[in-house]
Design a protein around this nucleic acid. Structure first.
Ligand SMILES: [Mn+2]
Ligand SMILES: [Mn+2]
Ligand SMILES: [Mn+2]
Ligand SMILES: [Mn+2]
Lengths: 149, 149
DNA sequence: TTTAAAAGTTAGCTATGGCTAATAATTTAC
DNA sequence: GTAAATTATTAGCCATAGCTAACTTTTAAA
């Protein structure tokens, strides 16, 4: 979806030992985390401030400006955003779709953790990491628990 | 614990905007994921087969041998393992402690997901990613739910 | 005991994701 | 309307994490 079809992928699926399945999946998820955080955040900033400027992205992520510039170049290359130099950033259709998906996951995980009894701050922090590693099945169970649990 | 004190850390904590806290935490967690997976796996292999050979590590992780060699060099540099060329790998005290901690987290998350109603395979896969992003607080709630829920 | 296979390492490539320092463009203040 | 401040980009650094190809060492077979 968000990523290049296997830039550094092996000739023969390296040892598709059955046990390796989980790790393969996690590596795949890790490759998309950054892009997911970016598009989700960009959507948020546009909603809150009417635009997403690199300086705001950097502040929210807690990284330096050049880090953001480079990441945005990559997102543009991947077709998730459009941009012009020195201007703020826009989501493509694809980027917007991914952002919505991420926001949904984020909110379900967050609601779930809070319902479980976690304080808001810790919940937010854990959700920010966990959201990238929950399957649809888990998400469904989280949502069910949050809604009625 | 497992990592260098900020190799690429900024001069002044880059924009310690309050909102950035969650992302900072996640980035920190991401830096340790690989090391955590390795030491946990090494402990497992030693338990199962009496030794941890690079070839077995590679098979289980689903990566190529040179990837493992390099990662092991890094773990050794960080004081988590000891090794000699062409021989199998051992955990240092520190590595062993980290492995135990990881195994504990992994098992709590896994038990929790299964208790929630997830199938074993999906649970294993999600746990492999989630385990690196749960705070002690969340872990406590997971454990409580798994035990009595 | 020689040879073949398996395992491990090294060298070298690509891409990501951080950073600083220097420069360029834009916006704001005067 | 110019000068200053802010914002953004570029260039260049470093470490991680993957890969292949080539080589070395160790282990297993014949
Ligand atoms: Mn996130
Ligand atoms: Mn998020
Ligand atoms: Mn893991
Ligand atoms: Mn694990």
């Amino acid at each position: 979806m968000t990523h290049d079809p296997n830039l550094a992928a092996p000739a023969e699926p390296p040892s598709s030992d059955n046990r390796s399945e989980a790790f393969q999946g996690v590596r795949e998820a890790r490759r998309n985390e950054l892009a997911e955080d970016y598009v989700e955040l960009i959507a948020e900033l546009i909603h809150e401030h009417g635009e997403a400027r690199p300086v705001a992205i950097a502040a929210r992520l807690g990284v330096r400006a050049p880090t953001v510039t480079k990441a945005l170049d990559r997102l543009a290359r991947e077709g998730l955003i459009t941009r012009e130099p020195y201007r703020s950033v826009f989501l493509t259709e694809e980027g917007h779709a991914l952002a919505r998906e991420c926001r949904r996951r984020h909110e379900i995980v967050l609601r779930f953790l809070i319902r479980l009894g976690l304080d808001a701050e810790t919940a937010e922090r854990d959700a920010e990491g966990i959201e990238h590693h929950v399957s649809e099945q888990t998400l469904a169970l989280f949502a069910a628990y949050a809604d009625e649990g």
